[in-house]
């Protein structure tokens, strides 16, 4: 069996918010390059925190996180060229048009004006936004805003793409289009790290998953193997089987 090179390597990670006990303690995870990796867990399990640690938004108190072999702590500025991030919130300027948003975020991603123009044209075409390229985003529907959010995250063609609930609140057509585009990106070599509560969508998209709870990995592997291993027919059943049916976001 050929050994895949790691896109993300997390070793002996320690992290805790101030005033709380450590969320991650001696946490280890390896995400293979070229995979479509799904990160799941109940509310408060640590998904967003782990995503923020992997993108350098949070700094671990101990351990190592390497993106494509580069340690985040040591290569903070150069590591940022390696990945794109599509946050759950609409992370752009609503007063600007898609073209203006892409021009700004493209420049901040280190692209030249020529490349930005070319990529903007391509992305707006692929994501069906060409007709509204010069309209202000604040007047867009939720689905259109999601597509703008995605376009900004991939304008610099990063080898790693972090997606935090990229399809929340969109209609079936938009969800389908986004998932197809993500598959296309992955086919072209982009490693996807995806988190969502839409488990049916995850079944369609992910070829590797990890289920985490209270800062620990409960299961990790190929979704089909995990389902058969635990005698479940779908990810939702597997999820409830492993994490229980009680509310998980009772504490504040």
């Amino acid at each position: 069996m050929a050994t895949m090179s790691p896109a993300i390597q997390i070793n002996e990670l320690f992290f805790g918010y101030s005033g709380q006990s450590g969320l991650f303690s001696d946490f280890n995870l390896m995400i293979e390059a070229g995979s479509r990796f799904g990160l799941f867990g109940p509310n408060g399990a640590g998904k967003t925190t782990l995503m923020n640690l992997m993108t350098g938004l949070l700094t671990p108190s101990g351990g190592h996180i390497r993106l494509l072999g580069k340690e985040i702590k040591k290569h903070k500025s150069s590591v940022n060229f390696l990945f794109g991030f599509v946050p759950q919130d609409f992370s752009f300027y609503h007063e600007l048009s898609p073209v203006e948003n892409l021009a700004f975020f493209g420049a901040w991603s280190g692209l030249s004006s020529t490349v930005i123009r070319k990529r903007t044209s391509e992305l707006l075409d692929i994501l069906g936004l060409t007709a509204v390229r010069d309209k202000k985003v604040k007047d867009f529907s939720g689905g259109m805003k999601r597509r703008v959010n995605l376009a900004i995250g991939v304008i610099h063609e990063p080898p790693l793409l972090f997606l935090d609930e990229p399809t929340v609140g969109v209609d079936v057509q938009t969800r389908h289009a986004i998932i197809q585009y993500l598959k296309q990106l992955n086919a072209e070599g982009t490693t996807l790290i995806y988190t969502s509560h839409q488990l049916s969508e995850a079944e369609d998209l992910c070829d590797r998953i990890a289920l985490i709870d209270q800062g620990r990995i409960i299961v990790h592997g190929d979704p089909d193997n995990l389902l058969s291993e635990h005698g479940q027919e779908g990810l939702e059943g597997l999820f409830l089987h492993l994490t229980g049916k009680n509310y998980r976001d009772q504490s504040v």
């Binding site: 993108t55 350098g56 938004l57 500025s77 150069s78 940022n80 060229f81 990945f83 991030f85 946050p87 759950q88 919130d89 609409f90 992370s91 752009f92 300027y93 975020f105 420049a107 901040w108 991603s109 280190g110 900004i152 995250g153």
Partner: peptide, 17 residues
């Protein structure tokens, strides 16, 4: 406070710009 700042922090440009 809004999401654009989170994204800016993940981009390879210093916020001083």
């Amino acid at each position: 406070l809004n999401g654009s700042f989170i994204r800016l922090k993940t981009l390879p440009t210093n916020y001083l710009v």
